[in-house]
């Protein structure tokens, strides 16, 4: 019982980080129907940036998010503007897969050249600190990360629901043509939306880099997790991706702790297959467009 609850705590806290990464992924899909294969690489890039800021200037990884978020936002906007926007409309969805994958490989190469392939971890000095609560250990970093994820997701929600820009994004998601007719600059929205999705990687990267050792090749594992979370949650649904991240985080932690880590990823894919069989649109994916 003790190890079950301990694993549950771990799983819930870890899932916050994945929810954050996946929310950006699903946002990008929602707006542009682009499956962004570079999201994992954005996370790894952010982890390296936070790592460098800590080692070079002693900037705390949680504080470094304030610097890395605008950088990733600008990078996202730039990539959308330079590489995705010019794609021919009819096959943009397919081609964007290749383009974003190329971006991921390019980033991987750049990071390998800059940092070598040695595994790094962000060590702010308090990474192993944990509180004992009723006999259970609550790791401070994971708790901070979880709270941070909730804050970021709440901010994302407010941005989408309460601002004019958010309304423009939602309108573009629901019907790009109609939105354009009503005066929404859908090209600008697409670029900013892609930037926003990439920006979520900044916070996720800082936390990811504290929890797990990473190198330039870590994005393959990440992107496969993110894609499954996004599909499980329902493509385009931020709420769905949060629930899916919880399912994955808790599921893998429980299976690892109670059975074996060999089966943890497999179990998640079984859940994914079942959901897809019974509910092809994913947990919260709406059948109509515009689930944001």
């Amino acid at each position: 019982m003790h190890s079950l609850i301990q694993a549950l705590i771990l799983g819930i806290l870890t899932s916050g980080v994945y929810a954050l990464m996946a929310s950006g992924q699903t946002l990008i899909f929602g707006i542009m129907k682009v499956i962004n294969l570079a999201q994992g690489a954005f996370v790894v890039l952010s982890a390296y940036l936070s790592y460098s800021l800590l080692t070079a200037w002693g900037i705390d990884p949680f504080l470094s998010i304030l610097i890395t978020t605008p950088v990733l936002f600008a990078l996202g906007v730039g990539i959308q503007w330079a590489l995705l926007r010019p794609l021919h409309k009819d096959d943009a969805a397919e081609l964007s897969l290749l383009v974003t994958f190329a971006v991921a490989l390019g980033l991987e190469g750049l990071l390998s050249a800059t940092y070598s392939t040695t595994f790094r971890s962000i060590q702010p000095g308090y990474e192993n600190f944990s509180w004992t609560v009723l006999g259970y250990q609550v790791n401070a970093v994971r708790l901070f990360a979880f709270v941070l994820s909730l804050l970021m997701l709440a901010a994302l929600y407010l941005l989408l629901q309460r601002t004019k820009f958010g309304r423009a994004i939602r309108a573009t998601v629901q019907n790009p043509m109609a939105a354009q007719l009503l005066g929404v600059n859908s090209r600008l929205v697409a670029a900013l939306g892609f930037g926003l999705g990439a920006a979520t990687a900044a916070a996720a990267g800082a936390v990811f880099g504290i929890i797990t050792p990473f190198n330039s090749g870590s994005h393959y594992d990440l992107i496969s997790r993110l894609l499954t979370i996004v599909v499980l949650g329902g493509l385009g649904s931020i709420g769905g991706s949060i629930i899916a991240a919880l399912v994955m985080g808790v599921g893998t932690a429980l299976v690892s702790a109670l059975a074996s880590p060999i089966w943890s990823d497999f179990t998640f894919f079984v859940v994914l297959l079942l959901v897809l069989l019974l509910r092809p649109q994913g947990l919260l994916g709406a059948k109509i467009r515009g689930a944001l």
């Binding site: 893998t252 429980l254 880590p261 943890s264």
Partner: peptide
């Protein structure tokens, strides 16, 4: 007694079961 694959990114759940 637990064997973990090299892909295991986060060993905390395994260690939590061991620690128990």
């Amino acid at each position: 007694d637990q064997t973990y694959p090299s892909e295991t990114a986060d060993l905390t759940p395994v260690v939590s079961a061991m620690a128990a």
